[in-house]
Each structure stands twice: as C-alpha cells, then as structure tokens.
Design a protein around this nucleic acid. Structure first.
Length: 439
DNA sequence: AATTCAAGCAACCGCGCACAT
DNA sequence: GATGTGCGCGGTTGCTTGAAT
C-alpha cells in the first residue's frame, strides 16, 4: 500500500507532455501493449521487447547490454494516465452531446462520484473527462435548474433537510454518498424516482420503467450489501446499462455511438444486426436494451478473468428467463444463454474470445475482439470527424501551433487506431528483437 | 493594449486494493 | 503476517485560453 515507488525517484519529468514523449509512448504501446506501466518509461524510448514472461530476464540483460536507457523520463503512472486520458485510439473527444450529459446525470444519481463506472457506460469518454465536465459544467447547470448536484434533489428540499439535521451533512463529502444511502435506506425506488423526475428525458419515459428500475434497485441493494461485507467492488456497472437505457429509451443512452467497440445496443439503429436476433426471442419491451449490455459485461468479465471454457459468466434476474436459448453475437462471436431454475447463465465459447493473459485492455477498449474491425473503423471515423472540426476552428482564426499539434495528434491516433487491433490479435514477444539484444 | 477573471482541461497526488515475495 | 510493488480511482491543483473590463 502507499505511494508508487517511482514517485520518489528524481529526474522524472512532470507537467504537460510533449509531442515527442507522446510519440514514444504511442509507438511503444501500439506495438507492445502496456501490461506493466512501470516499465513503459524505461522501454518506451527503445525498441525493446516487452512481455512479462521475458521481463525479468530482460531487465538483467538491459543492465548488462544497455548503459544508455533514456526512454521516457516519466513515471509509469504518468504514462498510464496520458494513454488512458489522451492517447488511446478509441477516445471520442469533442464536446459532450446533450444525450451524453443527461446520461451522466442519470448515472451520477445512482452511482455518485464513481467516475470510472460512469465512464464505462460512455464509450470513448474517460473518467477524467466526465469528472471535469461534471465539476465545470453540469454541476452549475443543475444548480441553475434548482437541483442539488450532490443529492439530485431540489435545492429547497436539501436545505430543509439540512435545517432539520444540520449535523448529518455539513460538508460536500458527506453529501456525496447521499444518493446511495437514500437508495439503500429507502428500500424502494421512490426516492430516486422523485429525483429523476427533474430530468426531462427521464420523466417522459418513467411510466414504463418501474419493473426494470425495481430490478435495478434490488440489485443495487444486493451489490451494496455484498460489497460492504465482502469488501469487493460493486458489480453495479453490470446493471447500470439496463437501468439507464430504460430511463430514456429515446435518449438511446449508450447507443449514441452505435459503432463503438462496446457493442452497445441502439434500439433505433438499423445498422446493428444484434437487435433482430434478440427481438426474435425477447418479447418484453424492456429487454432489447439488455443483451448488448450484458454482452459487453460478459465479455469484459470473460476477458478480465481466467474462466475455463464455457463456464458461467453471468447471472441474470428471473425477469429475463425468456432469453433461454438465445444466441447473441456479432462478427461471428456468440454468447449462448440458458436458464437454470431461477437463474440464467450465459456461456461464451472460449475459442472465440481468447485474449492474451497479460492484456487487461477490456477496461479501456471494450470487447475489441468482438469488434476488431469496427474498432478501427469507428476510431478512424471519429478521428476524422474531430480532425475536421479542429481544422474548421483553425480556419476561423489563425492556425496556431496548438491546433497543429492537435491535428498531428489525431494523425498519430489514426496510426494508433490502425495498429490497435494487432495488440489484441494475440501477443507473442518478438523473439528476433530479443535475440538481437544478445548480439 | 494591458490586465483581470473565470472556465476548461490535463496532469498530479494520495489512497486503497490486489497480488507477489 | 509483514512488506513491497503495481494498478486504478477520486480529489485536487495549476496551467492555458478566451472573454470581459
């Protein structure tokens, strides 16, 4: 526990990243993946192999053979942050849409300041980005509308509560968990419904949301209890997709970017073939939003654990028993859903979702193996769009070095996007590079 | 034109958790 | 069990930029 060891080291650069540093980092990661951030800075400036299997041996060889390892003068933590928040090829960038903002508000009402979980439901957005948006913009907007951003209740109501019990929450920190505590304490969905009523998109569709919401609340309470007793992270994110999509089906929630690697279902989209597969076996109007969310979750789970082939990877409510026999999939990948008593298990054939053990990219690049091609296409598409918009901005004023820099970055990202798929196609250490070290 | 101020954003910091030794 | 290391998360800081004065 405690501070990262590299933080104590001197001579490490801090502050903004230069294009050269970015280039080194992109080059390294797109070629070798990240795996171990602490070693990235040492290796990024050199064309050395990077794989855990060889890591220790390499470090020994490096000390023998390479006296001049400049690399990046950054700590691994800094590299990780830079990659995740800025250099990742699947980042969406650009201004947040209204739909995205509404979704963030909805998710925050349930999850509180769990930015990473919120970000997981917004493909192409980072937790940092969402956090910044919340603190700089959304908070203010909510206050202007008379809504307390911490509790998602009317400010007048919050003030009354504070007057009634001033000692209970005198600071911001205490109020951060209010939405959570309210949910758990109430034991039903009334509280959150009342707060969500303030959001038009939610209000308009609240009438047909009760069952899923109740389901979600039950899961929330269950996950909350288990997380407090087991001291494990909540698995809430699994259910958030269900919940948010049903709050605002017209909002299309996560599907605002239907081609993302997260494989999120857009009920209005004609482009995805997934919904037709589900519609054939799912009759409940609430259900169409579930499979893709579940698929995303399942694949993430599958990729982040070492489950044996065809092992159960998910547990669903009995409300969705009519999934039995469904086979979900895209691009040749499938998940078979079968029910057993009151539970439903989904099975992912192992042969289709092999991810290198050392890769934990599912957190960053969701389900890349399912949408390998889509990932590249989408990334390139988004990046082109962004490049275009930036160019337009530039032509309005002078073409500053900053805008040049951003355009260059987009081009670099395009290259990274092209290479990203190779990261996931399986990873074998380039033995020739390794052997070349010996000469 | 110079200064001030606020907003937005990138990056850092501290902490906790998981895992290895 | 104690300690060290790696990673991820949320809070915070501080820089940049553009608008207002």
């Amino acid at each position: 526990m405690g501070r990262h060891s590299c933080c104590y080291k001197q001579k490490l650069r801090k502050g903004l990243w230069s294009p050269e540093e970015d280039e080194k980092l992109i080059k390294h990661i797109t070629k070798y993946g990240h795996g171990c951030w602490s070693s990235v800075p040492k290796l990024a400036g050199n064309n050395l192999i990077f794989h855990r299997f060889f890591y220790k041996m390499l470090m020994f060889l490096i000390t023998l053979l390479c006296d001049n390892l400049e690399g990046l003068q950054r700590c691994g933590k800094s590299c990780r942050l830079r990659w995740i928040n800025y250099l990742r090829p699947d980042l969406k960038r650009g201004a947040f849409s209204l739909e995205e903002e509404n979704l963030i508000i909805e998710l925050h009402a349930v999850l509180g300041n769990r930015w990473s979980q919120i970000a997981a439901q917004l493909p192409g957005r980072t937790d940092n980005e969402i956090k910044n948006l919340w603190n700089s913009s959304i908070k203010k907007k909510l206050r202007q509308r008379g809504i307390d951003p911490n509790t998602h209740k009317p400010i007048s109501e919050v003030e009354n509560e504070e007057k009634a019990s001033p000692s209970s929450k005198n600071n911001e920190k205490a109020s951060e968990g209010i939405s959570e505590l309210t949910l758990v304490d109430s034991g039903n969905s009334r509280k959150i419904n009342s707060s969500l009523d303030h959001y038009p998109l939610i209000q308009n569709n609240s009438s047909n949301l009760a069952p899923t919401h109740e389901f979600f609340m039950n899961k929330f309470v269950a996950s909350h209890e288990s997380s407090t007793t087991d001291n494990k992270p909540s698995d809430l994110s699994e259910y958030v997709s269900f919940q948010q999509l049903n709050y605002s089906p017209n909002n299309i929630g996560l599907s605002m970017n239907p081609n993302t690697s997260n494989l999120l279902f857009n009920p209005n989209s004609k482009s995805s073939g997934i919904e037709s597969e589900f519609n054939s076996c799912v009759t409940n109007t609430v259900l169409p939003s579930l499979p893709s969310s579940f698929l995303s979750f399942s694949t993430r789970l599958k990729s982040s654990t070492s489950l044996p082939p065809d092992s159960p990877i998910g547990l669903l409510s009995t409300k969705f028993q009519n999934w039995d026999g469904c086979s979900l999939g895209n691009n040749g990948s499938t998940i078979n859903v079968t029910s057993s008593n009151s539970s439903i298990f989904a099975h992912v054939p192992s042969s289709e979702h092999e991810i290198p053990e050392d890769m934990k990219w599912s957190e960053y690049l969701h389900t890349p193996l399912i949408l390998g091609n889509n990932l590249q296409n989408q990334s390139a598409q988004d990046l082109f769009g962004e490049t275009k918009s930036r160019t337009q901005v530039s032509t309005e004023g002078s073409l500053t070095s900053t805008s040049n820099w951003h355009q260059n970055q987009q081009l670099q990202n395009l290259q990274a996007a092209d290479m990203s798929a190779s990261i996931f196609r399986g990873f074998l250490p380039p033995v020739d590079n390794f052997l070349s070290l010996l000469h």
